[in-house]
Structure formats: structure tokens, C-alpha cells
């Protein structure tokens, strides 16, 4: 029995299949640009300046959004800022500080799942849509009557 032609045919089919799949995969990847997001760790205070000179006041568009919220602080300083891309059905880990990180999963191209961690422990998990132009703010109390805030928005 001559098995070589059978093996060769099988191999050819396998190679052809891979080529086809990779074409589809490449197209799929090209079709899914992922979600471009920006996360920012912010310090909220009524002090006019941050004791850390590297912390600049937040951009005006973020400030405008924060001003619309029922928060009692008038000044917000950017502690850290990260831009990242989250492909479809992928989870990105975004460290924002030594103790704080965020994990963002792109659920379906418009909805995301966010998990917030403090010292390794999950403090919040939430799913929601995040359309362009909108912002999600996670926040809580910080010492000395200040606040920590983590913002997430889509960027072009």
C-alpha cells in the first residue's frame, strides 16, 4: 500500500486550511481594532496644589465631567495616566499605582467589564457600556478629607 500520496494530500489540505484560517484571522484582527482607552488615577482635594509637583491638574475635559458630579472637592490632580488598547474578549491589566490596579475586559466592542483592585484584593467589579465621549469614574475616600478617583474613558 502506498501511503505517501495519502500523507502528502493530507498535508496539503492541512496547509491549505491553515492558510485560509490565517486569512480569516488576519481579517478578523484587522476588523477588530479593540477599544482604545485611557485610565487615570486622580487625587481629589480642596487644596490648591498637590504636595507632589509632578501631579498636574487634570485636563479641562475631565475637570468638566468631574464638576458635574456631586463631589465636594474642587481640585483634581493627575497622579498617573495610562493609555491602552483592549482587543475583543481580552482582559488588560492596568497598574495605576503600587497598590492599585484595574483590569478591563472588552466584552463585545462596546461593553466593558472593569475590576478594581487595591493591594491585590478586588474591591469592585462592574460591566457597562462606555460610549465615546463618556467617562466612568470610580472613587472613594482618602485620608485627610480627600478622595482618590480612577477615571476611564475612550480615546480616539
Amino acid at each position: 500500500m502506498n501511503s505517501k500520496p495519502i500523507a502528502a494530500t493530507g498535508l496539503a489540505w492541512a496547509v491549505l486550511s491553515l492558510l485560509v484560517c490565517s486569512q480569516f484571522t488576519e481579517k478578523a484582527i484587522a476588523a477588530d481594532p479593540g477599544l482604545k482607552l485611557e485610565a487615570q488615577l486622580i487625587w481629589g482635594t480642596n487644596d490648591p496644589q498637590s504636595p507632589d509637583p509632578s501631579h498636574k491638574p487634570v485636563d479641562s475635559d475631565v475637570l468638566k465631567k468631574l464638576a458635574a458630579l456631586p463631589l465636594k472637592w474642587s481640585n483634581y490632580f493627575s497622579v498617573n495616566r495610562k493609555g491602552f488598547n483592549v482587543p475583543l474578549t481580552t482582559t488588560c491589566k492596568v497598574p495605576l499605582s503600587e497598590k492599585c490596579r484595574m483590569e478591563v475586559k472588552n466584552l463585545d466592542g462596546t461593553r466593558i467589564e472593569i475590576a478594581l483592585f487595591g493591594r491585590g484584593e478586588q474591591v469592585l467589579k462592574r460591566s457597562q457600556a462606555l460610549p465615546k465621549g463618556e467617562i466612568l469614574v470610580l472613587a472613594g475616600n482618602a485620608p485627610n478629607d480627600t478622595a482618590w478617583l480612577v477615571t476611564l474613558k475612550r480615546i480616539e
Binding site: 467617562i135 469614574v137 482618602a142
Partner: peptide, 22 residues
């Protein structure tokens, strides 16, 4: 304004609160 705020009502000594600038 298209803003969603999720306020975590933990005390100020919570894990995330240490990011106050020193």
C-alpha cells in the same frame, strides 16, 4: 455630561486610599 460615578463607601483607610501624594 455622560458621566458615571461609582462611589465606594469604604473608610479612608481602605487599600486604595494610600495613593494620596506624600
Amino acid at each position: 455630561s455622560g458621566t458615571t460615578l461609582v462611589w465606594l463607601s469604604y473608610p479612608a483607610e481602605h487599600e486604595l486610599a494610600d495613593d494620596e501624594p506624600s
